[in-house]
Design a protein around this nucleic acid. Structure first.
Lengths: 345, 345
DNA sequence: TTGTACGCGTTATCAT
DNA sequence: ATGATAACGCGTACAA
């Protein structure tokens, strides 16, 4: 507010053209003669014009805003997803209004209302609180990532494949017994498929296995204690056997690894460990941990592509309304590091 | 675009009031009688009115947008800062337009122009590329976090104090020689103060010390290799002495710790280690690493408070222009874990 | 307490 | 190739 904003009117007055022509200079410059473009260009310079996209939005309805609701940013997976999404600005041009959800349905609903009030063109939802049937009812392009997605388009990692890959690698080490530890997550959650993948492979190849579905705690220390106890149980229960343990994420895998090393001074040959996510800790661990990496860059890109399609669709022609939601699946990548070396015979 | 948007006009027609009254219902409801409020409320329900803040912005100039330019989100420090900033929505109500910088001055400049075009009310800058004198020239409320800040308001950790605390803790363990490894960062960078803190304490108390300022690599593997070499050097150079090593961040500290454990099977009593940042890896390391924690929640809150003050200032009265920039300092917190146990005599 | 009339800065429509 | 004029949806004097 250094006095007053320069507007198209000012430029128009200054150059002798009409506001319309100034507008055209920005949106369809080819329709002006080169010299007139030049005249306007210098006028813009001289008057130090600053564009006002708010006015433009009101006039043409295109905000180029996309709303994001993400559970948090302290988990590496989420911050990396956001990282990759934000990077698409250079190719898609959408600006991102970001909210971190707080796990309360009502407040996240408020966030959505706020986003709608700003006339966002679409949303990317990663938080889990609001059911997809409600999301669909907002009647705006939506893509969810790694959450319940029955009624909206989505991008998910191929969790089943991830479970299969992790389990297979564990089996190939020569482990006698395969163990999967996980929280007792609901069956609709995408990551439940990892459990199925583990289970199916074990059954298909007749591999002895145990599924430990239990409360894994809500803080790091709690989880650490629980996993320590679990390790003790496993240690005595499968004394003579080689144990292949599939943890649901790298943080858990790292905790397990640390407990083992604190107990034995090294990673014993009868323990094989794999995590999930390829988060930094898996690489930074005392022994680099094998894991299943989600292709976060591809997930983010696919989400934006899906969303962009929907947005472009609705910018033209008639509604073509309520196309079936698209569900895109991104394969994970097995990362074989040092915690799944073959058993030495 | 389910047909057409309901506007104040529609509500006005439907209720028999004027648009002004409908507007007042939202902005100054007390000026209406309770029954009329009720009438309008039900009309809004019935017609399924959705507010349009874009129009409101154009009319009153208040976007409630704040722009953020942050270098990246894969470093825990940055994602946590963003996390905490986003959380302030509940108390301040500002919406955040987020860009990740890419270390190119020109593109970050483009981001700023884009943000300005959306009439943001202020900016929080964490990226380092654009000098503060240029930031100041944009003539809009700005707060920077942990970067060069001569001409703009800022919030920074008390890096000097952090360096002092880390060094003191190391000294208190009884270490014979204190070593600080760091990249050769420019003196204007806030974190350079950590180096000064280390240096000053060592000199003040006549503690033998060595400062290793060198290229620390640009990838994890590179850094790992460099630190391994450095460790070898230190190991032979200070054979009989107890070495207290102050690393510039927890990732480095963790790498050093892992190298030590891989070499000796444990953390030898003649090695004391401290990192910086209190990032997850410091806690998740095989031996929990002592570190200096930045109070990220307070940093974020202070930044928003500073920014909010500036914004409110400019919403009222005359410019009161170009007040001196405010620089706020947040003290760090020493976190004494298991890598700085006193030397056993 | 409520209404009138105009402004915010652009784009879209229809002319010329 | 350029212009005049009416939107876009809301806020705000000023009036009543």
């Amino acid at each position: 507010m250094g006095k007053k904003n320069i507007t198209f009117s000012d430029i128009a007055k200054y150059t002798g053209f009409s506001k319309t022509t100034i507008s055209r200079y920005f949106n369809n410059p080819d329709s002006l003669t080169l010299e007139n473009q030049q005249i306007i260009a210098t006028a813009l310079e001289k008057l130090n014009y600053k564009e006002n996209k708010v006015a433009r939005i009101l006039a043409n309805g295109k905000t180029e805003f996309i709303g994001i609701i993400i559970p948090n940013l302290y988990m590496h997976y989420y911050s990396e997803i956001l990282n990759q999404i934000l990077k698409t600005y250079d190719s898609f041009g959408y600006k991102f209004l970001v909210f971190t959800g707080d796990d309360h349905e009502s407040t996240e609903r408020k966030y959505i209302q706020e986003l709608l009030a700003y006339k966002i063109e679409g949303m990317i939802i990663l938080s889990h609180t609001i059911p997809s049937i409600e999301l669909a009812s907002y009647n705006i392009p939506i893509v969810t990532i790694e959450r319940e997605d029955q009624y909206v388009s989505s991008v998910n990692t191929d969790n089943y494949m991830g479970g299969v890959q992790a389990t297979s690698l564990l089996a190939k080490t020569g482990a006698d017994i395969l163990i999967h530890i996980n929280a007792d997550i609901p069956k609709q959650t995408p990551s439940y498929e990892r459990i199925r993948g583990f289970s199916d492979i074990c059954k298909e190849y007749n591999i002895p296995h145990e599924m430990i579905l239990t409360d894994t705690g809500h803080t790091y220390d709690e989880t650490s204690r629980i996993l320590k106890d679990l390790l003790e149980t496993i240690d005595t229960k499968y004394k003579r056997k080689t144990k292949g343990i599939f943890l649901p994420n790298d943080t858990f895998a790292n905790i397990m690894l640390n407990h083992l090393i604190q107990k034995y001074g090294c990673l014993p040959d009868d323990y094989k460990i794999i995590g999930f996510d390829d988060s930094p800790v898996s690489r930074e661990a005392i022994i680099p941990i094998s894991t299943v990496g989600q292709q976060i860059d591809k997930i983010a890109l696919s989400a934006m592509e899906l969303l962009n399609e929907q947005i472009e669709e609705r910018h033209k022609r008639k509604p073509t309304l309520s196309v079936e939601p698209t569900h895109k699946i991104i394969p994970p990548i097995l990362i074989n590091r040092k915690t799944t070396l073959p058993v030495e015979r």
